[in-house]
């Protein structure tokens, strides 16, 4: 199967570096059972302000790709640049905030202390910390829960706190790995629309891993469809939906058309058989 080429969405400004630029990126894990190709020949450019979703079945390498951007995994071939830097330097520059599948809040810290964690590590003053905690907690609608411990909150609130923690140090890039995967659909809808508002307000670049087609179409300006064995990109879909998206946009023909194309992309990658 041939691989779709890079989408060339250079907007003419010329000066701005792409936030993420992957060329012929490959990653092979060596395990006891031999080599496993997690990523193969991935080409992708993400511009500033994009909301990019990665969709595909389990094992397609979408999480691995996100972790490679975050320098949590090292590619074995090809090049990857974050803001024109190597992933390692970008990580040391605190270029991104990462939201994991689980909230990963430290249970011995209150919510505000959890949000303060990156700020403490990055050496912000107490006053700056207090100001940023207040701002990000307002942003994710968690005001009033500062002194609670994570285990006193619901799963949805915990995940919102972990988003606040990723936003607290003002990185321009937000990497989100199935952040709402463990939540029920009602909470998920709510958080999705909140996330869109947040993206609109903060003008951040967001990379969002999901395996839900409606979620990907609803959130994204660009949808990257991936397929497994080996993990590769089969389609990149630019969404023409408006930036302002009420939840009922999901019943419009435009929305359904994009969803159909995503589904076709998944099927073309023979990935439907993999989905159980």
């Amino acid at each position: 199967m041939s691989v779709t080429s890079i989408t060339s969405s250079t907007t003419g400004t010329g000066v701005a570096l792409p936030v993420v630029k992957a060329e012929h990126l490959g990653l092979t894990f060596s395990t006891n059972d031999g080599d496993v190709v997690a990523l193969s020949d991935v080409n992708l450019t993400i511009e500033k302000g994009d909301f990019v979703s990665f969709i595909g079945p389990s094992g397609c390498g979408k999480t691995t790709f996100l972790r490679t951007i975050a320098d949590l995994e090292q590619p074995t071939s090809g090049t990857l640049e974050i803001n024109g830097q190597t992933p390692e330097n970008a990580r040391k520059d605190r270029a991104y905030g990462y939201v994991f599948q689980a909230p990963a809040l430290y249970p011995w810290r209150t919510i505000e202390k959890n949000i303060a964690l990156p700020l403490e590590i990055m050496g912000h003053s107490a006053q700056q910390q207090a100001e940023r905690i207040k701002r990000t907690m307002d942003l994710v609608n968690l005001s009033g829960f500062e002194k609670k411990f994570p285990w006193q909150l619901s799963g949805g609130m915990q995940q919102r706190a972990s988003i606040a923690r990723a936003l607290a140090f003002d990185a321009d890039l937000l990497l989100m790995d199935e952040p709402f995967g463990a939540l029920d659909e009602i909470v998920r809808d709510h958080l999705n629309s909140e996330l869109l508002k947040l993206w609109d307000r903060t003008k951040k670049t967001i990379c969002f891993v999901t395996h839900s087609i409606p979620e990907a179409v609803y959130l994204s300006t660009k949808i990257v469809v991936m397929s497994p064995r080996p993990g590769r990109v089969t389609d990149i879909i630019e969404s023409n939906l408006p930036r302002e998206r009420p939840l009922d946009i999901r019943e419009t023909p435009e929305f359904l058309a994009i969803a159909a194309r995503v589904r076709d992309g998944l099927r073309a990658g023979h990935s439907y058989e993999e989905v159980v």
């Binding site: 949590l72 991104y96 689980a102 990055m122």
Partner: peptide, 23 residues
């Protein structure tokens, strides 16, 4: 996942020890 979080903050060894691993 808790260690990865520290890595994304580019936390050094002692920060990771004091803020995560010892607690």
């Amino acid at each position: 996942i808790e260690r990865d979080l520290m890595r994304t903050y580019a936390a050094n060894y002692w920060q990771t020890l004091l803020k995560l691993r010892l607690p």
